[in-house]
Amino acid sequence: MSRFTAALAAEWRKLTSTALWWVLALGMAAYLAFVGAAMAFSLTVAPEGQAPPLGGLDAALTVYGVLNAVGYVFPLVVGTLLVTTEVRHKTLTQTLLAEPRRGVVLGAKLVLAAGIGLLYGVAGVVGLVAAGAPVLSAVGDGAFLGDPQVVRALLLGVLVTGLWAVLGTGFGAVVPHQVAAVVAILAFTQFVEPIARLALGAVDGLSVVSAYLPGAAADAVVGASLVSQMGDVDLLPAWAGALVLLGYAAALTFAGRLTTFARDVV
């Protein structure tokens, strides 16, 4: 076993030997099931005599699009936990005794984050489809699960969930305090970025900036989201959105390597 695969195996065992990872995965599936069903109802059910807000494929795409729009807090949090639990419980000492090359440790955490993020993406898709699709087909015009556009949106949603987890690990390396990191993530994703996107979108010349915010970049990969439909925002091409997310992850990881992972561990 090479040094890196040994470190990766150790990270995997650390993550899966406590309950949090599957509790969060279940939470993500349940949350997306709830939001998916609620969204499907609100898009397809209308008062007597009025047309539903969206129909057909558009309704299906919007429902399946919430995977990224509302689900990305979960992979972000699990990504940061790979670093912050080690700091919180002082297991980082043991980790660095086993592998003193800190770049190897951080690299193993990033790779594990990507894998676990994809797994979270699958959990989210399962929850979303399990609750959203029956509503769409029973009340609306159909679930459209076989439609290539729907399949693409779901697959890209899984991919983006993986990217969010990697970004989360980079963020955890910069803000290793567990409570601070989780609070910062919730504040940024639920409050700061949505407002910033709407505000920037309202100002001519600044809406181009908002496309580079991480949430907007993720929307660009998937293709649509609630917030980008509310504001009149230009999104980047899908590939560029993915690159922007990777860029955030790389910058955060680099900063974390120079701070948390360069410091004396006392």
Binding site: T5, R13, K14, S17, T18, A19, L20, T95
Partner: peptide, 14 residues
């Protein structure tokens, strides 16, 4: 939240 056995198993590969 980790068992004693799992704690050791986590460092065993390295």
């Amino acid at each position: 939240g980790r068992t004693g056995a799992a704690h050791l198993a986590a460092y065993a590969p390295q």
